[in-house]
C-alpha cells in the first residue's frame, strides 16, 4: 500500500507529484487537447470530417447541449445536481406547443408561460434542497417524476409535439441565422459567455464556488448560502427551458417517447464532468464545460461518420464518463474535508 502511494506520488524535480502537477492544470485544457487530438485523427481517417460545413454541423448539434451543460455545471459546482432538467426541457417545448395550438395562446405567450413554469420548478428544487435539506439527487429525481406525471395528467395529451408550420419565434431560434451564423450557435455562445462572466466576475458566482468548495466554511463566513443554492437551480432550470425551445426549433418536433431527453441529461452531466467540474463541488470552469461539450459533439459526429451505431456511441460515451470520474477522483482524492461536507 505504501509502495502504491509512493509510486502515485512520485516526486518530480520541483518536489511536486504528477498528480499534484496535473491537478494544477485546468482540466478544460486537458479535454481541449484530447478533443483537438480527436479532431486531428478524424481529419486523417474520416473523409469529409474536417470541413467548414461539418464543423458548423457539430457546433449547431451541440448548441442545446452546451446551454444545458452550463446550467448543470453551475449546480454541480454548488455541490448539487439537477436531474429534473429532463422534464423541464421537454415540458417547456411540448407545453408551449400545447398552449399555443390547443389553448389559444400566441406563440410568444406560450413560451413566456412555460419559461415561468420552468423557473418555478427551479425555485421549488432550490427551496427543497437549501431550506428543507433534502439531497439534490432525490429532490430533483422526485421533481422529475412529479412534474412529468402532472403534465401528462393535466396538460399534455401526446408524447410527440410537432412545431406548427406558422411558427415564427421558435423557427427563427432553431433555424435562423445572425450574421451568417446559425442562431443556436449564437445562443450557445451567449450562454457560455454569460456563464463565464457570472462565475468569474460576479460576487454570487464566486460565492457559489466557495460554497461548493466548503459549504460549512461558507456558512460560517456569513455567506447567504441558501439563496445561492436556490439561484443555481433557477439558472439550471432556465438553461433547460432555453435548450428545450432550441431543440424544438432545430428538430421541428419534440418527442418524449422511448425515453427522449435522458440522453441529453447524461450528455450535459458528462460534458460538465469531463470538462473538469468536480462532483465534489467548487471546482471546474465554463471553459472546461465548453470543451467537454465540444468533445461530445465531435465524438457523436465522428461515430456517425464512421457509421457506428447510437448504441456503440452511447457505450463509448459512458466509458469516457467513467474514466473521467475515476480521473477526477484520483486528482481530487476524498479527504476529511470532502467526506464531512459530502458530495454527490
Amino acid at each position: 500500500m505504501a509502495q502504491i502511494e509512493t509510486a502515485s506520488r512520485a516526486r518530480t524535480a520541483d518536489g511536486l507529484s504528477l498528480r499534484d502537477r496535473l491537478a494544477q492544470i485546468d482540466q478544460g485544457i486537458l479535454i481541449a487537447l484530447v478533443t483537438l487530438v480527436m479532431v486531428a485523427i478524424g481529419a486523417v481517417l474520416v473523409d469529409g470530417f474536417l470541413t467548414g460545413d461539418n464543423l458548423m454541423t457539430i457546433l449547431r448539434a451541440s448548441s442545446a447541449l452546451g446551454i444545458l451543460a452550463v446550467g448543470s455545471a453551475i449546480v454541480i459546482m454548488a455541490k448539487g445536481v439537477d436531474l429534473s432538467v429532463v422534464v423541464v426541457t421537454a415540458l417547456t417545448a411540448q407545453g408551449a406547443v400545447h398552449l399555443w395550438t390547443r389553448n389559444d395562446f400566441s406563440e410568444l405567450q406560450a413560451l413566456v408561460v412555460m419559461g415561468m413554469v420552468a423557473i418555478t420548478i427551479g425555485v421549488i428544487n432550490g427551496w427543497m434542497v437549501a431550506y428543507v435539506g433534502i439531497p439534490a439527487l432525490f429532490t430533483t429525481l422526485g421533481m422529475w417524476l412529479l412534474v412529468d406525471g402532472a403534465a401528462r395528467v393535466w396538460l399534455l395529451d401526446n408524447q410527440v409535439y410537432i412545431l406548427p408550420a406558422d411558427s415564427n419565434v421558435v423557427t427563427d431560434l432553431g433555424r435562423g441565422e445572425l450574421f451568417g451564423i446559425p442562431f443556436p450557435i449564437v445562443a450557445a455562445t451567449v450562454a457560455f459567455l454569460a456563464g463565464w462572466l457570472f462565475l468569474e466576475y460576479t460576487s454570487q458566482g464566486r460565492l457559489i464556488r466557495a460554497y461548493g468548495d466548503n459549504p460549512e466554511a461558507a456558512r460560517l463566513a456569513g455567506i447567504p448560502t441558501r439563496p445561492l443554492v436556490v439561484l443555481t437551480f433557477v439558472i439550471c432550470a432556465g438553461s433547460a427551458a432555453v435548450a428545450g425551445v432550441l431543440l424544438l426549433g432545430i428538430n421541428g418536433s419534440y418527442s418524449t417517447a422511448y425515453g427522449g431527453g435522458k440522453d441529453l441529461l447524461f450528455n450535459a452531466i458528462t460534458a460538465a464532468v469531463i470538462g473538469g467540474v468536480s462532483l465534489t463541488g467548487g471546482k471546474g470552469s465554463i471553459f472546461g464545460v465548453l470543451w467537454g461539450t465540444l468533445f461530445i459533439g465531435t465524438f457523436v459526429n465522428l461515430m456517425t461518420l464512421l457509421n457506428l451505431s447510437v448504441e456503440v456511441s452511447s457505450l463509448l460515451k459512458a466509458a469516457v464518463l467513467v474514466v473521467a470520474l475515476a480521473f477526477d477522483s484520483w486528482l481530487h482524492p476524498r479527504d476529511e474535508e470532502t467526506a464531512k461536507s459530502d458530495d454527490l
Binding site: L247, N251, G252, S255, A257, D263, L264, N307, V310, E311
Partner: peptide, 11 residues
C-alpha cells in the same frame, strides 16, 4: 449509413 434513431426525432 445505417443508424438507429431510437425513434427520437432529435437523434
Amino acid at each position: 449509413s445505417t443508424q438507429h434513431s431510437r425513434y427520437d426525432p432529435a437523434v
